[in-house]
Amino acid sequence: MRICRFDNNQLGVVQGNDIYDVSAALALLPEQAYPFPGHDLLIANLESLRPRLMQLMENAPKKALTDVQLLAPVANPGKIIAAPVNYLKHLEEARADKEIHHANQIGEIQRVGLFLKANSSLIGVSQPVELAHPERRNDHEAEVVVVIGKTGRNIAAKDALQYVAGYCAGLDMTTRGPEERSMRKSIDTYTVLGPWLVTADEIPDPGSLAFRLTVNGEERQNANTKDLVIDIPHLIEFASSFYTLNPGDLIFTGTPEGVGPVEPGDRIEMELEGVGTIAVNVTTMETV
């Protein structure tokens, strides 16, 4: 099932070129008293909602994909976890390119660990990436994104895929510089997620997903998750040994070689096998 959010926080199921508005299913979510939970309610209840989503599609109003504004398919991730240098060739290019490493030490992922991105950086594909520091180098990083489906801590790799709700395509945008990763990658609009969430049952082998990224039609990145240094089950094991993972948490699994700068006016497209294509424009952030 392909699940999206669109327009005024409406819930949709995507089939072909159409979106079925199944927002009425949200009435089945449990009422929550303040404070709201630190996870995404839709993802936490996704399995119980799926029969109702299918039922509603029979008579649901529908719109063409081209007529809606797609939002981030996960509205309220408790945290956004990211894996640095998780492809060997990207590790090599990061160490070789001074404009990437800025004299920072680039270590193997097993040693440097994971990092967190601010939730406020999250956008869907209908919003542009806005460069906050256009005088600096701003790079695209294409990544496969795992959406956690249920709460877990110290999850064994052999059990990890049972904790996955689905997968999305993602862009982990970054401003190059001497600051820590979590700061340079947490700028507003620097976490692109979409175009929708594809549930885990539709991705039988996340360890062999091809993806590619182009800028203005020129291919820059072309890779497959089979080349990950730490694969998806072991990333979940690694992350959950430090953090409790909750429904809606996002894990950006790492970018391959070929990262490069973008400028205002550019258009970035990323195609992920089994999921779809995200396409965003690059602009300059307006200052208040």
Rank of each mutant, 00 (worst) to 15 (best):
M1Y: 04
M1I: 07
D7C: 10
L11I: 00
A27D: 15
E31H: 15
Y34P: 10
P35H: 07
F36D: 14
G38T: 07
E47V: 06
L49A: 08
L49N: 07
Q55F: 04
E58S: 12
N59D: 03
A60D: 07
A60V: 00
K62D: 02
T66N: 05
V68L: 11
V68T: 14
L70T: 08
V74H: 02
P84A: 10
A103E: 14
A103N: 14
N104V: 05
N104M: 11
Q105A: 15
G107V: 15
G107C: 13
E108N: 15
F115L: 13
S121T: 03
S121V: 03
S126V: 08
P128S: 04
V129F: 05
E130A: 10
L131P: 08
L131M: 09
H133P: 07
H133A: 15
D139Q: 05
G149E: 10
I155V: 02
D159R: 00
A169Q: 10
T174Y: 02
G177Y: 03
P178F: 07
K185Q: 06
P195K: 09
W196S: 00
D201K: 08
I203M: 13
D205C: 10
S208F: 13
L209Q: 06
R212Q: 15
E219M: 14
R220L: 07
Q221N: 12
N224V: 05
T225P: 06
K226H: 10
D227R: 11
S241A: 10
F242P: 09
G248N: 04
T255I: 03
E257V: 07
P261W: 02
G265E: 05
T277R: 07
N281E: 12
M285H: 11
M285W: 13
E286Q: 11
E286R: 13
